Amino acid sequence: MFAVASTGANVASLPIGACLDRYGPRATVLVGSMSCLLGNLLFGLSGPKFDGYLAGFLMLGIGGPFCFIGCLHISTVFPSKSGLIMAAMTGAFDASSSIYVFFEIIHEKLGGSIHRLFLFYTLVPVIVALTTMALMPKHSFGKSDVVADGDEEEEIVAAGVEEPTETQPLLASSPAAPVVSTQDLFSKQLKSVEFWGITGTVCIMMLRLNFYISSVKEQAIDLAGTNNSSTAIDNLLRFFNIALPAAGIISIPAIGYLLDNFAFSTSLAVLWGFGVAFGVLGLIHSIPLQYVTISIFVVMRPLLYTIGNDFCAKTFGFHTFGRLYGIMNGIAGVLNLLQYPLNYISLDLMGGKFWLSNGILLALAGGGLAGFPAYLARGRV
Rank of each mutant, 00 (worst) to 15 (best):
A177K: 14
N235F: 12
F239R: 06
E194I: 04
L185F: 10
M206H: 15
R208D: 07
S230E: 15
F239Q: 05
G279R: 06
S265K: 03
W196Y: 14
P288G: 05
D234N: 12
V180S: 07
S229M: 10
P288H: 02
E166Q: 12
R208F: 15
L289G: 06
L223N: 03
S295R: 12
L223H: 06
V280S: 00
K217I: 12
R238T: 12
Q189T: 02
G256F: 05
L259C: 05
P253R: 04
D184T: 09
T167H: 10
S295L: 14
L236W: 08
L237A: 07
A224G: 03
I233W: 02
N210R: 11
C203A: 15
T201R: 02
A263W: 05
P178A: 07
D260Q: 05
I221Q: 03
S265E: 09
T165F: 14
Q168A: 11
T231P: 00
V292Y: 04
F274K: 01
T293Y: 06
Q189H: 13
A263G: 06
T165N: 10
I250R: 02
L171D: 01
I198Y: 15
F240G: 04
S173I: 13
L259V: 10
F195G: 07
L283Q: 00
V276N: 00
A224H: 00
N241I: 10
Y291S: 04
T266E: 06
M206I: 12
L237M: 12
L190S: 03
S187I: 14
I250F: 02
L259E: 04
F278Y: 13
P253H: 02
W272Y: 03
R238G: 07
N227H: 08
M205A: 13
T201M: 13
S267Y: 04
F239I: 09
I213F: 14
G273D: 00
Y212W: 08
G282L: 03
I249P: 12
I255S: 09
A224I: 01
V202I: 15
L259N: 08
G197Q: 08
Q189A: 12
N228Y: 13
L209Y: 10
I213K: 12
V193I: 13
T226C: 01
S174R: 15
P178T: 08
S181A: 12
S173R: 15
D184Y: 05
G225P: 09
L170E: 06
L209S: 11
Q219C: 14
S187C: 15
V180Y: 06
I294E: 06
D222R: 02
T165E: 10
C203H: 10
L244V: 14
S265N: 11
